[in-house]
Protein backbone atom coordinates (compact mmCIF):
# COMPACT_ATOMS: atom_id res chain seq x y z
CA UNK A 1 0.00 0.00 0.00
CA UNK A 2 1.41 3.35 -0.86
CA UNK A 3 1.39 4.91 2.53
CA UNK A 4 3.21 8.13 3.06
CA UNK A 5 3.55 9.98 6.29
CA UNK A 6 4.36 13.61 6.12
CA UNK A 7 5.13 14.94 9.52
CA UNK A 8 4.02 18.45 9.95
CA UNK A 9 5.27 20.79 12.58
CA UNK A 10 4.69 19.45 16.09
CA UNK A 11 3.11 16.43 14.48
CA UNK A 12 3.71 13.49 16.73
CA UNK A 13 3.49 15.18 20.08
CA UNK A 14 0.31 17.06 19.35
CA UNK A 15 -1.26 14.19 17.46
CA UNK A 16 -0.61 11.60 20.12
CA UNK A 17 -0.94 13.27 23.42
CA UNK A 18 -3.09 16.27 22.94
CA UNK A 19 -5.62 15.18 20.41
CA UNK A 20 -8.45 14.90 22.88
CA UNK A 21 -7.92 18.37 24.19
CA UNK A 22 -6.99 19.22 20.66
CA UNK A 23 -6.33 22.79 19.78
CA UNK A 24 -4.36 23.38 16.61
CA UNK A 25 -6.17 22.37 13.43
CA UNK A 26 -4.25 19.96 11.25
CA UNK A 27 -1.73 19.37 13.97
CA UNK A 28 -1.79 15.62 13.52
CA UNK A 29 0.45 13.73 11.17
CA UNK A 30 -0.70 13.12 7.65
CA UNK A 31 -0.90 9.72 6.03
CA UNK A 32 -1.47 9.16 2.34
CA UNK A 33 -2.72 5.85 1.02
CA UNK A 34 -2.55 5.13 -2.68
CA UNK A 35 -2.08 2.25 -5.06
CA UNK A 36 1.65 2.70 -5.57
CA UNK A 37 3.93 0.02 -4.23
CA UNK A 38 5.64 1.30 -1.11
CA UNK A 39 8.85 -0.44 -2.04
CA UNK A 40 9.37 2.36 -4.52
CA UNK A 41 9.95 4.77 -1.68
CA UNK A 42 12.31 2.77 0.53
CA UNK A 43 13.35 5.64 2.73
CA UNK A 44 9.79 6.62 3.62
CA UNK A 45 8.92 2.98 4.14
CA UNK A 46 11.78 2.49 6.60
CA UNK A 47 10.88 5.68 8.43
CA UNK A 48 7.28 4.49 8.80
CA UNK A 49 8.40 1.05 9.95
CA UNK A 50 10.78 2.45 12.55
CA UNK A 51 8.19 4.87 13.86
CA UNK A 52 5.62 2.11 14.16
CA UNK A 53 8.12 -0.12 15.92
CA UNK A 54 8.74 2.57 18.49
CA UNK A 55 5.03 3.30 18.76
CA UNK A 56 4.20 -0.36 19.29
CA UNK A 57 6.28 -0.86 22.44
CA UNK A 58 3.55 -0.04 24.89
CA UNK A 59 0.97 -2.05 22.99
CA UNK A 60 3.34 -5.02 22.70
CA UNK A 61 3.87 -4.91 26.45
CA UNK A 62 0.10 -4.87 27.06
CA UNK A 63 -0.47 -7.75 24.68
CA UNK A 64 2.29 -9.77 26.31
CA UNK A 65 1.03 -9.16 29.82
CA UNK A 66 -2.51 -9.97 28.68
CA UNK A 67 -1.56 -13.22 27.03
CA UNK A 68 0.73 -14.38 29.82
CA UNK A 69 -1.85 -13.57 32.47
CA UNK A 70 -4.56 -15.35 30.55
CA UNK A 71 -2.28 -18.29 29.90
CA UNK A 72 -1.29 -18.76 33.54
CA UNK A 73 -4.60 -17.78 35.08
CA UNK A 74 -6.56 -20.50 33.37
CA UNK A 75 -3.98 -23.22 33.97
CA UNK A 76 -4.00 -24.84 37.39
CA UNK A 77 -0.54 -26.26 36.83
CA UNK A 78 0.85 -22.92 35.62
CA UNK A 79 4.56 -23.06 34.79
CA UNK A 80 4.57 -26.84 35.07
CA UNK A 81 3.39 -26.90 31.47
CA UNK A 82 6.71 -25.42 30.44
CA UNK A 83 8.49 -28.44 31.98
CA UNK A 84 6.27 -31.26 30.90
CA UNK A 85 7.24 -31.67 27.23
CA UNK A 86 11.03 -31.74 27.81
CA UNK A 87 10.52 -34.08 30.77
CA UNK A 88 8.36 -36.48 28.81
CA UNK A 89 10.64 -36.50 25.82
CA UNK A 90 13.67 -37.05 28.06
CA UNK A 91 11.99 -39.99 29.77
CA UNK A 92 10.95 -41.52 26.47
CA UNK A 93 14.33 -41.00 24.82
CA UNK A 94 16.21 -42.32 27.85
CA UNK A 95 14.05 -45.45 28.00
CA UNK A 96 14.44 -46.00 24.27
CA UNK A 97 18.15 -45.53 24.47
CA UNK A 98 18.54 -47.91 27.46
CA UNK A 99 16.51 -50.55 25.66
CA UNK A 100 18.74 -50.04 22.65
CA UNK A 101 15.71 -49.15 20.51
CA UNK A 102 17.50 -46.04 19.41
CA UNK A 103 21.25 -45.94 19.41
CA UNK A 104 22.74 -42.59 20.26
CA UNK A 105 26.43 -41.91 20.58
CA UNK A 106 28.16 -40.42 23.59
CA UNK A 107 26.86 -37.01 24.70
CA UNK A 108 28.90 -34.46 26.61
CA UNK A 109 26.19 -34.36 29.32
CA UNK A 110 24.39 -37.24 31.04
CA UNK A 111 21.90 -38.36 28.41
CA UNK A 112 18.61 -37.48 30.19
CA UNK A 113 19.97 -34.03 30.99
CA UNK A 114 21.14 -33.65 27.41
CA UNK A 115 17.72 -34.45 26.03
CA UNK A 116 15.89 -32.28 28.50
CA UNK A 117 18.07 -29.25 28.01
CA UNK A 118 18.04 -29.63 24.23
CA UNK A 119 14.28 -30.12 24.16
CA UNK A 120 13.74 -26.99 26.22
CA UNK A 121 15.80 -25.07 23.66
CA UNK A 122 14.06 -26.73 20.72
CA UNK A 123 10.67 -26.04 22.21
CA UNK A 124 11.56 -22.39 22.56
CA UNK A 125 12.50 -22.29 18.90
CA UNK A 126 9.22 -23.93 17.93
CA UNK A 127 7.19 -21.50 20.05
CA UNK A 128 8.96 -18.61 18.33
CA UNK A 129 8.33 -20.18 14.94
CA UNK A 130 4.61 -20.70 15.48
CA UNK A 131 4.12 -17.55 17.55
CA UNK A 132 3.56 -14.97 14.81
CA UNK A 133 0.98 -16.95 12.84
CA UNK A 134 -0.85 -17.93 16.03
CA UNK A 135 -0.81 -14.34 17.21
CA UNK A 136 -2.14 -13.10 13.89
CA UNK A 137 -4.84 -15.77 13.86
CA UNK A 138 -6.07 -14.92 17.34
CA UNK A 139 -5.95 -11.18 16.70
CA UNK A 140 -7.70 -11.49 13.34
CA UNK A 141 -10.91 -9.80 14.45
CA UNK A 142 -8.95 -6.84 15.79
CA UNK A 143 -6.67 -6.68 12.78
CA UNK A 144 -9.67 -6.52 10.47
CA UNK A 145 -11.22 -3.62 12.38
CA UNK A 146 -8.58 -1.39 13.86
CA UNK A 147 -5.33 -0.08 12.44
CA UNK A 148 -2.73 -0.45 15.16
CA UNK A 149 0.98 -1.14 14.64
CA UNK A 150 1.00 -4.77 13.55
CA UNK A 151 4.50 -5.19 14.95
CA UNK A 152 3.01 -5.18 18.43
CA UNK A 153 1.49 -8.64 18.21
CA UNK A 154 4.77 -10.11 16.99
CA UNK A 155 6.85 -8.34 19.63
CA UNK A 156 4.42 -9.49 22.29
CA UNK A 157 4.84 -13.05 21.11
CA UNK A 158 8.65 -12.80 21.25
CA UNK A 159 8.38 -11.51 24.80
CA UNK A 160 6.01 -14.31 25.69
CA UNK A 161 8.39 -16.93 24.33
CA UNK A 162 11.25 -15.44 26.31
CA UNK A 163 9.22 -15.40 29.52
CA UNK A 164 8.21 -19.00 28.95
CA UNK A 165 11.86 -19.84 28.44
CA UNK A 166 12.53 -18.19 31.78
CA UNK A 167 10.11 -20.68 33.30
CA UNK A 168 11.99 -23.50 31.62
CA UNK A 169 15.19 -22.16 33.19
CA UNK A 170 13.86 -23.37 36.53
CA UNK A 171 13.81 -26.89 35.13
CA UNK A 172 17.25 -26.48 33.63
CA UNK A 173 18.69 -25.18 36.89
CA UNK A 174 17.20 -28.13 38.76
CA UNK A 175 18.65 -30.43 36.14
CA UNK A 176 22.15 -29.02 36.50
CA UNK A 177 22.00 -29.41 40.27
CA UNK A 178 20.65 -32.96 40.11
CA UNK A 179 23.24 -34.23 37.66
CA UNK A 180 26.01 -32.09 39.13
CA UNK A 181 26.82 -30.56 35.75
CA UNK A 182 29.65 -28.06 35.95
CA UNK A 183 28.79 -24.63 34.58
CA UNK A 184 31.35 -22.61 32.68
CA UNK A 185 31.58 -18.81 32.96
CA UNK A 186 30.45 -18.80 29.31
CA UNK A 187 26.96 -19.56 30.62
CA UNK A 188 26.69 -15.80 30.93
CA UNK A 189 26.82 -15.65 27.12
CA UNK A 190 24.22 -18.36 26.66
CA UNK A 191 21.29 -15.87 26.69
CA UNK A 192 22.70 -14.38 23.48
CA UNK A 193 22.43 -17.76 21.78
CA UNK A 194 18.94 -18.31 23.21
CA UNK A 195 17.85 -14.91 21.97
CA UNK A 196 19.27 -15.78 18.56
CA UNK A 197 17.29 -19.02 18.63
CA UNK A 198 14.11 -17.05 19.34
CA UNK A 199 14.90 -14.51 16.64
CA UNK A 200 15.56 -17.24 14.10
CA UNK A 201 12.20 -18.82 14.86
CA UNK A 202 10.47 -15.43 14.77
CA UNK A 203 12.11 -14.60 11.45
CA UNK A 204 10.60 -17.63 9.79
CA UNK A 205 7.34 -17.28 11.68
CA UNK A 206 6.83 -13.66 10.64
CA UNK A 207 7.56 -14.56 7.05
CA UNK A 208 4.74 -17.10 6.86
CA UNK A 209 2.22 -15.28 9.09
CA UNK A 210 0.45 -13.21 6.38
CA UNK A 211 0.20 -16.27 4.15
CA UNK A 212 -1.19 -18.30 7.03
CA UNK A 213 -4.08 -15.81 7.11
CA UNK A 214 -4.76 -16.52 3.44
CA UNK A 215 -4.25 -20.26 3.30
CA UNK A 216 -4.80 -22.80 6.08
CA UNK A 217 -2.30 -25.00 4.29
CA UNK A 218 0.47 -22.80 5.64
CA UNK A 219 -0.21 -23.59 9.30
CA UNK A 220 -0.59 -27.28 8.54
CA UNK A 221 2.62 -27.39 6.55
CA UNK A 222 4.36 -25.55 9.36
CA UNK A 223 3.16 -28.13 11.88
CA UNK A 224 4.35 -30.95 9.71
CA UNK A 225 7.66 -29.29 9.01
CA UNK A 226 8.35 -28.78 12.72
CA UNK A 227 7.88 -32.45 13.47
CA UNK A 228 10.25 -33.42 10.70
CA UNK A 229 12.68 -30.66 11.56
CA UNK A 230 13.16 -32.08 15.06
CA UNK A 231 14.76 -35.15 13.57
CA UNK A 232 17.23 -33.04 11.63
CA UNK A 233 18.34 -31.19 14.76
CA UNK A 234 20.64 -32.68 17.41
CA UNK A 235 18.07 -32.71 20.20
CA UNK A 236 17.73 -36.37 21.14
CA UNK A 237 21.05 -37.37 19.57
CA UNK A 238 24.51 -35.73 19.61
CA UNK A 239 26.06 -34.11 16.54
CA UNK A 240 26.33 -36.87 13.95
CA UNK A 241 29.65 -37.51 12.19
CA UNK A 242 30.28 -37.26 8.47
CA UNK A 243 27.86 -38.74 5.95
CA UNK A 244 24.75 -37.55 4.19
CA UNK A 245 22.69 -37.27 7.38
CA UNK A 246 25.48 -35.38 9.15
CA UNK A 247 25.64 -32.90 6.27
CA UNK A 248 21.90 -32.29 6.37
CA UNK A 249 22.00 -31.74 10.12
CA UNK A 250 24.92 -29.36 9.75
CA UNK A 251 23.13 -27.39 7.00
CA UNK A 252 20.11 -27.00 9.27
CA UNK A 253 20.37 -23.40 10.51
CA UNK A 254 18.94 -24.32 13.89
CA UNK A 255 21.80 -26.73 14.58
CA UNK A 256 24.65 -24.26 15.21
CA UNK A 257 22.41 -22.00 17.30
CA UNK A 258 20.98 -24.73 19.50
CA UNK A 259 24.33 -26.46 19.88
CA UNK A 260 26.09 -23.19 20.72
CA UNK A 261 23.48 -22.32 23.35
CA UNK A 262 23.97 -25.75 24.92
CA UNK A 263 27.74 -25.56 24.79
CA UNK A 264 27.92 -22.08 26.20
CA UNK A 265 25.80 -23.11 29.15
CA UNK A 266 27.81 -26.23 29.93
CA UNK A 267 31.28 -27.03 28.58
CA UNK A 268 32.07 -23.54 27.33
CA UNK A 269 33.79 -24.97 24.26
CA UNK A 270 31.93 -23.73 21.22
CA UNK A 271 32.38 -26.23 18.42
CA UNK A 272 31.08 -24.17 15.52
CA UNK A 273 31.57 -20.46 16.23
CA UNK A 274 31.58 -19.53 12.54
CA UNK A 275 28.39 -21.36 11.78
CA UNK A 276 26.77 -19.61 14.72
CA UNK A 277 28.03 -16.20 13.60
CA UNK A 278 26.87 -16.79 10.05
CA UNK A 279 23.35 -17.70 11.19
CA UNK A 280 23.28 -14.65 13.49
CA UNK A 281 24.18 -12.27 10.69
CA UNK A 282 21.73 -13.94 8.32
CA UNK A 283 19.01 -13.67 10.96
CA UNK A 284 19.50 -9.96 11.52
CA UNK A 285 19.47 -9.19 7.81
CA UNK A 286 16.58 -11.58 7.29
CA UNK A 287 14.55 -9.99 10.08
CA UNK A 288 14.58 -6.66 8.31
CA UNK A 289 13.45 -8.27 5.08
CA UNK A 290 10.70 -10.34 6.66
CA UNK A 291 9.52 -7.36 8.64
CA UNK A 292 9.03 -5.42 5.40
CA UNK A 293 7.31 -8.41 3.78
CA UNK A 294 5.05 -8.80 6.80
CA UNK A 295 4.01 -5.15 6.80
CA UNK A 296 3.43 -4.95 3.08
CA UNK A 297 1.59 -8.26 2.86
CA UNK A 298 -0.72 -7.87 5.87
CA UNK A 299 -3.27 -5.49 4.29
CA UNK A 300 -3.76 -7.91 1.41
CA UNK A 301 -4.20 -10.77 3.81
CA UNK A 302 -6.60 -8.83 6.04
CA UNK A 303 -8.63 -7.76 3.02
CA UNK A 304 -9.42 -11.41 2.47
CA UNK A 305 -9.77 -12.38 6.10
CA UNK A 306 -13.13 -10.63 6.31
CA UNK A 307 -14.22 -8.68 9.33
Amino acid sequence: MGQRRVSKANALVAGRDGSHERGVPGSAEEVVYNAESRVRRPRELLAVLCRDLVASRELAWRFMVRDLRAQYRQAALGVVWAFVPPLLLAVAATLASRAQVINVGATDLPYPAYVMFSTALWQTFVEALHGPSQAVASAKAMLARIAFPREAIVLAKVGEVLVNFGAKLLLIAALFLWFGIPVSWTALLAPVAVLELVLLGTLLGVLVAPFAVLYQDVSRALMLATGFWLFLTPVVYPMPGAGAFGTVVRLNPVTPVLVTARELATTGAVSDPWGFTAVCVATLVGLLVTWVVFRLAMPFAIERAGS
Binding site: E30, R145, F300
Partner: peptide
Amino acid sequence: SGLINPDGGSLTVRGRVAP
Protein backbone atom coordinates in the same frame (compact mmCIF):
# COMPACT_ATOMS: atom_id res chain seq x y z
CA SER B 1 -9.10 3.27 8.50
CA GLY B 2 -6.01 2.19 6.57
CA LEU B 3 -6.87 -1.48 6.90
CA ILE B 4 -6.84 -2.27 3.20
CA ASN B 5 -5.16 -0.80 0.13
CA PRO B 6 -6.86 1.21 -2.59
CA ASP B 7 -6.40 -0.01 -6.17
CA GLY B 8 -6.63 3.50 -7.57
CA GLY B 9 -6.82 7.07 -6.35
CA SER B 10 -5.56 8.21 -2.99
CA LEU B 11 -6.71 8.92 0.54
CA THR B 12 -5.14 11.56 2.73
CA VAL B 13 -5.80 11.16 6.41
CA ARG B 14 -4.72 13.73 8.99
CA GLY B 15 -4.72 12.31 12.45
CA ARG B 16 -5.83 9.21 14.21
CA VAL B 17 -8.74 7.16 12.86
CA ALA B 18 -10.66 4.94 15.23
CA PRO B 19 -13.69 2.77 14.64
